[in-house]
Lab assay of single mutants.
Amino acid sequence: MGFKLLSKLLVYLTASIMAIASPLAFSVDSSGEYPTVSEIPVGEVRLYQIADGVWSHIATQSFDGAVYPSNGLIVRDGDELLLIDTAWGAKNTAALLAEIEKQIGLPVTRAVSTHFHDDRVGGVDVLRAAGVATYASPSTRRLAEVEGNEIPTHSLEGLSSSGDAVRFGPVELFYPGAAHSTDNLIVYVPSASVLYGGCAIYELSRTSAGNVADADLAEWPTSIERIQQHYPEAQFVIPGHGLPGGLDLLKHTTNVVKAHTNRSVVE
Results as ranks from 00 to 15, higher is better:
Ser70Ala: 08
Lys258Arg: 07
Ser160Asp: 04
Gln235Ile: 15
Asp164Pro: 07
Tyr68His: 11
Arg263Cys: 04
Gly158Ile: 15
Val42Tyr: 05
Leu243Cys: 14
Tyr68Ile: 02
Gly105Cys: 02
Pro176Leu: 12
Arg263Asn: 15
Val166Asn: 14
Tyr34Ile: 07
Ala218Pro: 07
Phe236Ser: 03
Lys251Phe: 06
Asp29His: 13
Pro232His: 15
Phe236Ala: 05
Gln61Glu: 06
Trp220Asp: 01
Ser208Asp: 10
Ser31Trp: 08
Ile84Trp: 00
Ala19Pro: 15
Glu225Asn: 15
His180Glu: 01
Gln49Trp: 12
Met18Arg: 06
Leu159Ser: 07
Glu267Thr: 15
Ala94Ser: 10
Pro190Trp: 04
Gly53Phe: 12
Gly43His: 06
Glu145Gly: 10
Val194His: 01
Glu225Pro: 15
Leu247Asn: 04
Leu83Met: 08
Ile40Gly: 08
Ser38Asn: 12
Val124Met: 01
Pro23Val: 11
Glu267Tyr: 04
Lys91Glu: 14
Leu217Ile: 03
Tyr48Cys: 09
Gly53Ala: 10
Leu97Ile: 00
Tyr175Leu: 10
Ser27Gly: 07
Ser22Ile: 13
Val132Met: 02
Ile40Glu: 07
Trp55Ser: 05
Glu172His: 09
Ile151Ser: 15
Arg142Ala: 10
Ser160Gln: 07
Ala15Cys: 10
Leu5Arg: 12
Pro190Ile: 13
Lys8Tyr: 15
Arg141His: 14
Leu97Cys: 06
Gly148Phe: 13
Leu9Met: 03
Ala95Arg: 09
Val212His: 14
Tyr48Phe: 04
Thr114Gln: 00
Ala144Ser: 10
Thr109Ile: 13
Gln229Leu: 14
Gly89Thr: 12
Asp64Phe: 12
Ile186Gly: 11
Ser162Thr: 10
Gln235Lys: 13
Leu243Met: 02
Tyr188Ile: 07
Ala59His: 07
Phe3Gln: 13
Val11Gln: 04
Glu233Lys: 11
Gly177Ala: 01
Asp214Lys: 06
Arg128Trp: 13
Ser38Lys: 10
Val266Asp: 09
Glu225Phe: 15
Gly158Met: 02
Thr182Asp: 12
Gly2Arg: 05
Met1Phe: 01
Tyr68Met: 05
Gly245Thr: 09
Asn71Leu: 06
Val126Leu: 06
Asp214Asn: 04
Asp52Cys: 04
Glu150Val: 11
Val189Gln: 10
Asn211Ser: 08
Ser62Gly: 08
Val187Leu: 14
Trp220Ser: 14
Ser191Thr: 04
Leu195Asn: 06
Gly210Asn: 11
Arg46Met: 13
Leu204Gly: 11
Gly65Ala: 04
Glu145Trp: 11
Ser208Ile: 13
Arg226Pro: 06
Pro244Cys: 13
Leu47Asp: 05
Val237His: 03
Ile40Asp: 06
Leu9Val: 06
Glu157Gln: 14
Leu96Gly: 07
Gly78Trp: 03
Gly105Arg: 05
His241Ser: 01
Val189Glu: 06
Pro107Gln: 11
Leu249Gly: 07
Ala200His: 01
Val194Gln: 09
His252Leu: 11
Pro107Glu: 09
Asp118Leu: 14
Lys8Glu: 07
Lys8Gln: 08
Pro221Cys: 07
Thr60Asn: 03
Phe63His: 15
Ile201Gly: 05
Pro69Phe: 02
Ser38His: 03
Leu159Phe: 07
Gly43Met: 14
Gln61Leu: 05
Ala66Ser: 04
His154Val: 09
Val212Tyr: 11
Gly2Met: 08
Val75Asp: 03
His115Ser: 00
Val28Arg: 06
Arg206Thr: 12
Ser205Met: 13
Ile84Phe: 15
Glu157Trp: 14
Thr134Ala: 12
Val266Gln: 13
Gly78Asp: 04
Leu106Trp: 10
Pro152Thr: 15
Ile74Val: 05
Thr153Cys: 06
Tyr196Trp: 09
Thr261Phe: 12
Ile224Lys: 01
Asp214Val: 09
Ala90Met: 15
Arg120Ser: 08
Tyr34Trp: 09
Val256Ser: 10
Glu80Thr: 13
Ser31Phe: 00
Ala98Leu: 11
Met1Gly: 07
Gly72Thr: 09
Gly72Leu: 01
Ile40Pro: 11
Val75Ser: 06
Ala179Asp: 00
Arg46Gly: 08
Ile104Tyr: 15
Tyr231Glu: 05
Gly245Met: 15
Val132Leu: 03
Ala94Arg: 13
Ser30Arg: 07
Asp29Ala: 06
Arg206Phe: 07
Asp79His: 07
Asp52Asn: 11
Ile84Gln: 00
Tyr231Met: 14
Leu217Glu: 06
Val67Ala: 04
Val166Pro: 06
Ser30Val: 04
Ala25Pro: 13
Ile40Tyr: 15
Asp125Met: 14
Ala129Phe: 09
Pro170Cys: 13
Asp77Arg: 07
Tyr68Ser: 03
Gly65Thr: 03
Asp85Trp: 00
His180Gln: 04
Gly169Trp: 04
Val166Ala: 04
Glu157Ser: 12
Asn262Gln: 07
Ser191Cys: 08
Val257Leu: 15
Ala66Val: 05
Ser7His: 02
Val67Tyr: 10
Asp52Ile: 02
Val212Gln: 15
Pro176Phe: 04
Gly78Gln: 13
Ile201Met: 14
Arg142Ser: 05
Gln229Pro: 07
Thr182Lys: 12
Met18Lys: 02
Ile151Phe: 15
Val112Cys: 06
Tyr231Phe: 02
Ala15Met: 01
Gly169Cys: 02
Asn92Gln: 14
Ser62Glu: 10
Ile100Asp: 00
Gly163Ile: 07
Trp220Pro: 06
Ser208Ala: 10
Thr153Lys: 08
Val11Trp: 09
Asp77Met: 02
Tyr68Pro: 11
Val266Thr: 09
Thr36Gln: 05
Gly197His: 01
Ala111Pro: 00
Asn262His: 09
Pro221Gly: 12
Gly240Lys: 01
Thr253Ile: 03
Glu225Arg: 09
Gly163Lys: 07
Trp55Arg: 07
Ala21Phe: 10
Lys102Asp: 15
Glu172Ser: 11
Ala98His: 15
Ser113Gln: 12
Phe168His: 09
Ala19Met: 04
Ala66Gly: 05
Asp125Ala: 04
His260Arg: 07
